[in-house]
Simulated scan of single mutants.
Amino acid sequence: MFPAKFQAVIFAFIMSGFMAFLMSGILTFINLGWFDGFIAGWLRAYLYAHACAFPLVFVFAPLSRRITVRLINARDISGS
C-alpha cells in the first residue's frame, strides 16, 4: 500500500492515534464524569490530543528505541 520509506511516519500516526483516543476518553471521564454529550466531548478532546501526540511520537520514538536498546544491552551484559 505505502512505500517502506513511510514506515516511521505511518507507525507514529497509528500509535499516536490509539494512545490519544484511549487517553482522551479516560481523562475526559476522570475529569468530567459521564455527561450528556460525552462522546462529542471525547471526540473533540481526541482531535486536539492526536494533533499533539502525532508529532511527539514521531520525534520521541527514536529516543525511546535508543533507550530501550541500551536497557536491553545493559541487562544482557550484566548476565541477567
Rank of each mutant, 00 (worst) to 15 (best):
Met1Asp: 15
Met1Thr: 15
Met1Ala: 13
Met1His: 13
Phe2Leu: 14
Phe2Ile: 03
Pro3Glu: 12
Ala4Gln: 14
Lys5Arg: 15
Phe6Pro: 02
Phe6Thr: 02
Phe6Ala: 13
Gln7Val: 09
Val9Pro: 03
Val9His: 06
Ile10Thr: 02
Ile10Ser: 03
Ile10Phe: 10
Phe11Ile: 13
Ala12Arg: 05
Ala12Met: 05
Ala12Gln: 03
Phe13Asp: 00
Ile14Tyr: 11
Ile14Gln: 07
Met15Trp: 11
Ser16Pro: 01
Ser16Leu: 12
Ser16Met: 12
Ser16Ile: 08
Ser16Asn: 04
Gly17Asp: 04
Gly17His: 00
Gly17Val: 08
Gly17Ser: 10
Gly17Pro: 00
Gly17Arg: 07
Gly17Thr: 05
Phe18Cys: 15
Phe18Lys: 06
Phe18Gln: 08
Phe18Trp: 08
Phe18Pro: 00
Phe18Gly: 03
Phe18Ser: 06
Met19Asp: 03
Met19Val: 15
Ala20Ile: 09
Ala20Thr: 06
Ala20Phe: 15
Phe21Ser: 10
Leu22Lys: 14
Leu22Phe: 15
Leu22Asp: 06
Met23Gln: 06
Met23Phe: 15
Ser24Trp: 10
Gly25Ala: 02
Gly25Val: 03
Gly25Gln: 05
Gly25Lys: 07
Ile26Ser: 11
Ile26Met: 14
Ile26Gly: 11
Ile26Gln: 12
Leu27Val: 11
Leu27Asn: 14
Thr28Met: 04
Phe29Ile: 04
Ile30Met: 08
Asn31Ile: 03
Leu32Phe: 15
Leu32Met: 11
Leu32Pro: 02
Gly33Trp: 09
Trp34Asn: 10
Trp34Gly: 00
Trp34Ser: 07
Phe35Trp: 12
Phe35Asp: 07
Asp36Ala: 01
Phe38Gln: 01
Phe38Pro: 01
Ile39Ala: 04
Ile39Leu: 13
Ile39Glu: 10
Ile39Asp: 12
Ala40Leu: 08
Gly41Tyr: 11
Trp42Glu: 01
Leu43Glu: 11
Arg44Trp: 03
Arg44Tyr: 10
Ala45Cys: 05
Ala45Leu: 00
Ala45Tyr: 12
Ala45Arg: 07
Tyr46Cys: 03
Tyr46Ser: 00
Leu47Cys: 12
Tyr48Ser: 00
Tyr48Arg: 01
Tyr48Leu: 08
His50Pro: 00
His50Tyr: 07
Ala51Asn: 09
Ala51His: 06
Ala53Asn: 07
Ala53His: 04
Pro55Cys: 11
Pro55Arg: 07
Val57Glu: 04
Val57Gly: 03
Phe58Trp: 13
Phe58Met: 10
Phe58Pro: 06
Phe58Gly: 06
Val59Tyr: 05
Val59Leu: 06
Val59Lys: 03
Val59Asp: 00
Phe60Met: 10
Phe60Val: 14
Phe60Glu: 04
Ala61Tyr: 13
Ala61Val: 09
Leu63Asp: 05
Leu63Phe: 10
Ser64Val: 09
Ser64Ala: 09
Arg65Met: 08
Arg65Asn: 04
Arg65Ile: 11
Arg66Val: 15
Arg66Lys: 12
Arg66His: 02
Ile67Glu: 10
Ile67Met: 08
Thr68Ile: 02
Val69Arg: 13
Val69Ile: 12
Arg70Gly: 11
Arg70Thr: 08
Leu71Pro: 00
Leu71Asp: 08
Ile72Phe: 01
Asn73Ala: 09
Ala74Thr: 09
Ala74Met: 11
Arg75Gly: 01
Arg75Asn: 00
Asp76Arg: 04
Asp76Gln: 07
Asp76Trp: 04
Ile77Met: 07
Ile77Arg: 01
Gly79Ala: 00
Gly79Asp: 03
Ser80Arg: 01
